[in-house]
Design a protein around this nucleic acid. Structure first.
Lengths: 128, 128
DNA sequence: TTAATAAGTTTAGATACTAAACTATAGCTA
DNA sequence: TAGCTATAGTTTAGTATCTAAACTTATTAA
């Protein structure tokens, strides 16, 4: 329920203005350095290529990502982060790290280890 | 990500036909026995009263809940589950129990205990 | 008896998807 | 090499889930 709630609120990441949860997930999926094909990105995010296409249009209009052509196949499109996109990426990463640090300050090494194992099991179930 | 995906797919619960995630959450929020005011339900689900109002319209049209008047205040409406709604509730509970059993079969008592503690901490953070 | 408040409903708009039709390129095959 | 099929990505129409704000009706308090 808490996650559900969290996953709805737009947030500001860095200088990039208000970014929706799906937008930041997409930025996270593209990755800091690399360029990625639409297709791969869709697979990585677990959504259809149509969904990704729409997101990219929006992120492009916000100047967070750019498209470039893929040398070996002129049908394909490579997506990569702009400087502004990278800022958002890093601000988001920073948030993750802080979050993790906070959690770690309240739990022992061993507890974290078990927690991660349990999350892994949970994930296996959810995949089915 | 897995939760995100799971939280989108409609499912069948009992004889109640296809029920969306939000619908089953609402049913869960109403509770098996009691009757609840719109307002309380909205608070319990962590959404606006407008959202609940819309959900209740849909659930009523599917014959899963009924409205009745609140004796002490004629502005207020009590919501409760119909027989069909209760079936869906129980089928969903059953699913939770099975899920929990499966998880328990793969983890020790102690691991579960720590896991629950960590989830609690996580929840505290998310609330902020 | 107004005036302000509270319970629900309605409406318009945003977000986040999917499925399916579509465009354009690639690559095989006869 | 002409033609068929497969693939990459885009577009469109539709659905689900929500919010904010305007609204209706009933309550309460001055």
């Amino acid at each position: 329920m808490q996650l559900r709630r969290l996953e709805r609120q737009p947030q500001a990441f860095g200088n990039a203005g208000s970014i929706t949860p799906s937008e930041i997930h997409t930025i996270e999926g593209i990755g800091y350095e690399g360029a990625i094909l639409m297709n791969e990105l869709a697979t990585r995010l677990g959504v259809t290529k149509g969904a990704v296409s729409q997101l990219i249009v929006r992120l492009e209009s916000k100047h967070l990502v750019t498209r470039s052509s893929y040398p070996h196949d002129s049908r394909a499109t490579l997506i990569s982060l702009t400087e502004k996109g990278k800022e958002a990426y890093q601000a988001h990463e920073e948030m993750h790290i802080q979050f993790y640090d906070q959690l770690r300050s309240q739990l022992s090494e061993q507890e974290i280890e078990i927690f991660e194992k349990c999350i892994g099991k949970l994930n296996d179930f959810l995949q089915k």
